[in-house]
């Protein structure tokens, strides 16, 4: 319960930062979002090199593993 409450405080603190710094929030935010997709691509490359990796990727994302 406390963990959840603390997380909500963190959400609120960041939202206040965005509100009060309309030109500053975007850079770290962009780095965060792009990092998620970079990780996804890096993981894909690693997985495809493993035995059965291609089949696993196809299970995850259908026919688009080529």
């Amino acid at each position: 319960m406390n963990e959840r409450k603390e997380h909500l405080y963190q959400v609120e603190r960041w939202a206040l930062f965005v509100r009060e710094h309309p030109t500053e929030w975007k850079k770290p935010h962009t780095e965060f979002i792009n990092a998620l997709f970079d990780k996804h691509e890096q993981f894909k490359e690693r997985l495809l090199k493993t035995p059965g990796g291609k089949e696993k990727w196809e299970k995850l994302y259908g026919h688009k593993s080529e």
Binding site: L8, E12, A15, V18
Partner: peptide
């Protein structure tokens, strides 16, 4: 969901 309620909280602060 918790994620949606956090989104709503964020939007309420940012666009108060």
């Amino acid at each position: 969901s918790p994620k949606d309620l956090e989104d709503a909280k964020h939007l309420r602060v940012v666009y108060a």
